[in-house]
């Protein structure tokens, strides 16, 4: 049956290779949004993950759960209200939360670059795409030889699968998928080691989404890039990720390699998310949804942030915040029930 997914020789097995070098390590990062006259909004709390060379990590969570906040904080790009209150971000052994702004500027974009959420809609409409990529190159690498810039632009466009003759076109002549590719090309301008892609496929149709996923997958194979892929769609990351970090309301719900997340998830939120996903291998099954809404940061519940929506919550969940429980080498979940069953 061509349409149905078929089990395939261990393509899905986690490709986590212990010998690979760790590029980015985030330890217990917490971020608050401070506004006058209000208690600080705890947008991100105690999140940790590691990213190795050539690895692709999926950061999954509902809208407003702090994904963008977390990503911006890695490069200290948060708006002034957002402050890192705790934790460390190591990039090749350097702590990005403490180094000087000048040193950080050497890392921003050149070592770690971001494809911002919604950036593809923010291309300057009156300048050609090639021009804008060239600008990104000169802005971040002022010493780049002027005569080689056009060649580099073509090279970058080629890398993301856009024909060179589209260089002179304006953003409105690009489709959504092409604009997203152009944004990725810009992020690649300085040969970074890490790319953070913030919801690059949201609002694109499934075929374009598959194209972008394939592109990212190829890029990391070809260039050895480490990629953080932010999405709200658990199904998307299953296709290409090595590890998945599921966030709920600013905290880590579960963090594990991709196989564990999809086949033996322990956190009820992950389990519910998976159930909400339409599965073509089991058509005619009624979808289940998670009733309720994510917590508001200004009115966080006392206990577990997921407790009000959790189908299996016990009394303790409503009063006490769960700790991060280590369930295996590479598996962390924050749930009281996990602890109880241990």
């Amino acid at each position: 049956m061509p349409g149905r997914p078929t089990v395939e020789k261990d393509r899905g097995e986690a490709q986590i290779n212990p010998t690979k070098r760790t590029v980015l390590e985030v330890q217990n990062l917490s971020i608050n949004y401070i506004s006058e006259g209000k208690p600080p909004a705890r947008a991100v709390e105690n999140v940790s993950f590691t990213l190795k060379e050539g690895e692709l990590i999926g950061l999954v969570g509902e809208s407003g759960c702090g994904k963008t906040t977390l990503m911006l904080s890695l490069l200290r790009l948060l708006p002034s209200a957002g402050q890192i209150v705790d934790g460390k971000v190591f990039f090749n052994g350097k702590d990005l939360t403490t180094i000087s702004e000048k040193e950080l500027n050497k890392i921003r974009w050149k070592e770690i670059s971001i494809v911002f959420q919604g950036a593809m809609n923010a291309l300057n409409p009156v300048r050609t795409v090639g021009d804008q990529i060239a600008e990104a190159i000169t802005k971040h690498m002022p010493d780049f030889p002027k005569d080689k810039i056009q060649g580099r632009v073509i090279e970058l466009l080629d890398l993301v699968g856009i024909a060179a003759d589209h260089k002179e076109h304006y953003p409105h002549q690009y489709s959504g998928g092409m604009r997203q590719r152009a944004m990725i090309a810009m992020a690649l301008a300085c040969n970074p080691q890490v790319i953070i892609a913030d919801e690059p496929t949201t609002a694109l149709d499934v075929m374009i989404q598959a194209q972008i996923l394939e592109l990212l997958d190829n890029l990391r194979k070809k260039l050895g890039l480490a990629i953080v892929f932010v999405t709200h769609d658990l199904g998307v990351v299953a296709e290409i990720c090595d590890k998945v970090l599921v966030m709920y309301g600013g905290v880590t719900a579960e963090y594990a390699d991709v196989d564990t997340i999809y086949n033996s998830a322990r956190h009820p939120y992950t389990q519910e998310l998976l159930k909400a996903f339409p599965d073509l291998t089991k058509p005619k099954k009624k979808l289940s949804s998670i009733p309720g809404y994510p917590p508001r940061l200004d009115a966080l519940p006392d206990g577990c942030r997921f407790a009000p929506r959790c189908p299996v919550a016990i009394a303790r969940c409503h009063t006490e915040q769960p700790m991060l429980h280590k369930l295996g080498d590479m598996h962390i979940a924050s749930c009281h029930l996990v602890e109880a069953s241990k």
């Binding site: 509902e62 809208s63 407003g64 959420q117 919604g118 809609n121 919801e199 949201t202 609002a203 709200h232």
Partner: peptide
């Protein structure tokens, strides 16, 4: 006016 909106759930 410019017909663009941040699509997506965000």
């Amino acid at each position: 006016a410019n017909g663009e909106h941040n699509t997506g759930p965000n």
